[in-house]
């Protein structure tokens, strides 16, 4: 009996902690301090909380919490329960670094150790989910080695994952 109580307490405190994290992340984007955020920034909030949904998945999440008559804003009271659930169930976990590296390596069929800008652009813009021009340019500007003019993917992947911590 005591054991069950303890476990329940423990779960409660985990939930409480998760909800505080969500609140902090939300507040950082709540410019008007009225417990709403711009719908365009919700993706950033969700991702900053350690989730990696695809654009389609993000779209579904937004659908769940948007007002019946979309206002362009998302309310905290709707965001909190949805996000708590996602985090408790550990959904949309990020891809491990080695898996990403593996994908790069396969595409670099010749084993050069790098991809050219053109190659990466081609992969990122063809089929599947759209990666828009702005995102692409940003990504290239961060990924392209300024001296070599190509993407040294091994370095790039490790730099980017370093920044996650």
């Amino acid at each position: 009996m005591a054991g069950a109580d303890e476990q329940k307490d423990n779960t409660d405190s985990i939930i409480a902690d998760i909800q505080k994290r969500i609140t902090e992340a939300f507040d950082m984007f709540d410019h008007e301090s009225n417990k709403t955020v711009d719908v365009r920034e919700v993706g950033t909030i969700i991702r900053s909380l350690g989730c990696c949904p695809s654009e389609a998945e993000l779209h579904d999440m937004l659908n769940m919490i948007e007002e019946e008559e979309p206002t362009g804003y998302i309310r905290f009271e709707k965001f909190l329960p949805m996000m708590t659930k996602v985090l408790m169930e550990r959904r949309y976990k990020p891809v491990p670094e080695d898996q990403l590296l593996r994908a790069f390596q396969v595409l670099d069929a010749e084993g050069k150790g790098y991809l050219s800008q053109e190659e990466l652009t081609k992969y990122m813009t063809e089929e599947g989910e759209p990666f828009n021009q702005e995102e692409l340019e940003e990504m290239l500007s961060a990924a392209v080695d300024p001296d070599k003019g190509s993407i040294q993917y091994k370095e790039y992947v490790s730099i980017m994952s370093l920044e996650e911590t």
Binding site: C52, M160, E164
Partner: peptide, 22 residues
């Protein structure tokens, strides 16, 4: 693989951007 790379990279890239923004 191309498709996977794209999926993974964009998800992961967007997450990095989000962290940076925060």
């Amino acid at each position: 693989y191309r498709y996977t790379l794209k999926q993974l990279t964009s998800k992961w890239y967007r997450r990095c951007r989000a962290n940076l923004e925060v």
